[in-house]
Design a protein around this nucleic acid. Sequence first.
DNA 1: CGTCTTTGACCCGCGC
DNA 2: GCGCGGGTCAAAGACG
Length: 291
Amino acid sequence: MMEKKSMNMDDYSIGSFPTYSLTNMFDLSEERSFMELLGVQNMNNSYSLLDSPLDVKESLAENNGNGKETSLNSQQQPATPNSSSISSASSEALNDEHNKTVDQANNHLQKQLKAKKTTNQKRQREARIAFMTKSEVDHLEDGYRWRKYGQKAVKNSPFPRSYYRCTSVSCNVKKHVERSLNDPTIVVTTYEGKHTHPNPVMGRSSVSHVGSLIPPPAAECTTTNFGGSENYLMSSPYYNHHRQQVLFNTLSSMGFPSKIPQERLVCSNPRVMDHGLLQDVVPSNMFKEEE
DNA sequence: CGTCTTTGACCCGCGC
DNA sequence: GCGCGGGTCAAAGACG
């Protein structure tokens, strides 16, 4: 077991803006640093890469110092990941909607029904994945455009949870962002759904080459092995997504343009080349052989 | 004027 | 059945 090294803010601060050191990020000899940067727990640390709402909740509860959180577990386990996204409202549900409309036809109720229909459609949630990132910025820039559609106070926490939705039409990817109660410097970002479009930054980015910051379209990121293994995490589109967030955040906080020295983006291991930038800095043994 | 954020109200699921 | 907390809607306001 590697020796645990706590993530000290001082170690990762740049100027007055506490963030991550690019040196550590791209120094291949510092395998640990980037894993911590990404929030991958592997050394009894408090940073963990999560793959389900349940895991998120439990982790948050643990991180908040009380493992007895109960209501947080109310989230249903996500449907099977290979289910064909969010199915439209079933005919049964539609009939139900119709009956309700007939029974309760007034403006106020129609408004409620509208909301209810929407809720029904989203009852079968897509798999979620959460990342814990040490950052002062709540909403990490990631190239995608998000619209904030809600904010709620979190029980037992002074920090609210913000809800964002991808602004692209027909893309129903959502994410919510909250801070860890135990460590306010940690931002927990939870993604739900897959982008149905390329990253909007793709077209104007200067780093659309080997090891691009831009993750591939969702269609190219197949989710495998939903069992919560590293395999799933590594192949998840969110994995690219999140590390991109971190990179954007770090670079922008340092005054960098959205470009990374190419020599640092070259993948030295052909076996993991197709995984993208992360493979440059994540130890190869983190990846499992895929047939 | 278009886009985005804020915020109060509402619905739903769950536990008691 | 009731209360609570999570999640969402949508009107209003802010902003460039």
